[in-house]
Simulated scan of single mutants.
Amino acid sequence: MATHARPAGPPRLTAAEFDVLYRRLLSRAAWARGDRGALASLTPARVLAATREVRTGRTVTLASPVETLPGPDNPEPARHRMSVQPEDDTVDGLHFAMDSFAMNVHGDADSHIDALCHVIYDGTLHGGVAASSVTSGGAEALSVEVARNGIVGRGVLLDVPRLRGVPWLEPGDHVSADDLTAAETAQHVHVSEGDLLFVRVGHRKRRSELGAWHAANARAGLHPSALEFLAERRVAVLGGDGNNDTAPSSTEGVDFPVHVLAIHAMGLHLMDYLQFEGLAPVCETEGRWSFLCVIAPLRLPDATGSPVNPIAVL
């Protein structure tokens, strides 16, 4: 395993510094201001090119099982109710086992995708859409329905703990743009325009080995300045095995700076709390960190997000 000396870490951002960064990324992502945001870069030609990543036909899920038990990071777990009639299995004839689900899509445990209407910042949604378009009845614009035809493209996994020679990043640690560039070099892969970028911080591995904790208060993630890397490469989607944002926040007055920059300024659909513990060993064994990726959010026309199960096809 390659090792990479841990730098002192990116500095905290003042409110003024964050505003400068926000405006710079907003300007650089002007091409992604339509209803589909950065998904506009997933042209038919790029989707077709991504199919050439398939060599073995092996498929790997990037989602964790939906959790129905409460925990420190999941006080409102999904509710799963079974309905089996009749309960006496000796009764003859046809019967059905049925169930229903209810969940908090944007929690700190279950894998989900954030729509472009998820972040309201300074009174607007992505692209200057009025925040009033999101009401208790649903989102009138930029809902997850934007991705109703699926998100298909070349996925790239950058494994930062592998780069640093550790099993996971500790809560509060930051992934910098230099980390992403160094991971590319170490893994012999290059993030290109239209790619679906996945960044592993090891959140899931730490959780499985040490137990759940209050991830809302302490978690590893990207430093806001790392979004410069994504803007330069014009990626289409960002996914992480944590929340993508570090906690505590590195930015004065903004609790989720990466969400603000990625969704609001750059038009990126975010996927939070994925898991890469199945994919990373396969990539390591095969010596390649890119793959075809297929993402199919539920068709929830007015929703700010959806449970998600991305599939890597190698």
Rank of each mutant, 00 (worst) to 15 (best):
M1K: 14
A15W: 04
A16D: 10
D19R: 15
V20A: 15
L21G: 02
L25F: 02
S27H: 14
R28C: 05
A32L: 06
G34A: 14
R36I: 00
R36W: 00
G37I: 12
A38G: 02
A40L: 12
L42I: 03
T43K: 01
P44I: 07
T51C: 08
T51D: 10
R52A: 09
V54C: 02
T56E: 13
T59K: 12
T59F: 03
P65T: 09
P65A: 10
L69T: 12
P70K: 10
T90H: 14
G93D: 09
G93E: 05
L94N: 09
H95C: 10
F96H: 12
D99I: 01
N104W: 01
H106I: 01
G107S: 09
L116I: 07
D122I: 00
G123D: 01
G123E: 05
G128K: 01
A130D: 15
A131R: 15
T135N: 07
E140F: 12
A141Y: 04
N149I: 00
I151K: 13
V152E: 13
G153R: 11
G155S: 10
G155T: 08
D159F: 06
D159T: 04
R164F: 00
W168R: 02
P171S: 08
D173S: 15
H174R: 13
V175I: 11
S176H: 05
A177Y: 03
D178K: 05
D179A: 05
D179L: 05
A183D: 00
A186S: 14
Q187A: 07
H188N: 09
H190L: 11
D195L: 07
L197C: 06
F198H: 07
E209A: 08
W213H: 14
N217S: 12
A218C: 05
H223S: 08
L227C: 12
F229A: 03
R233S: 03
L238E: 04
G239D: 13
D245P: 04
T251R: 01
G253T: 06
P257L: 11
L261Y: 05
A265Q: 06
A265H: 01
M266R: 12
L268I: 04
L268A: 04
L270T: 02
M271K: 00
L274K: 02
Q275V: 04
G278V: 00
L279G: 03
G287V: 06
W289P: 01
F291G: 07
L292M: 13
C293G: 02
A296G: 05
D302M: 09
D302R: 14
T304K: 12
P307C: 09
P307R: 15
A312L: 02
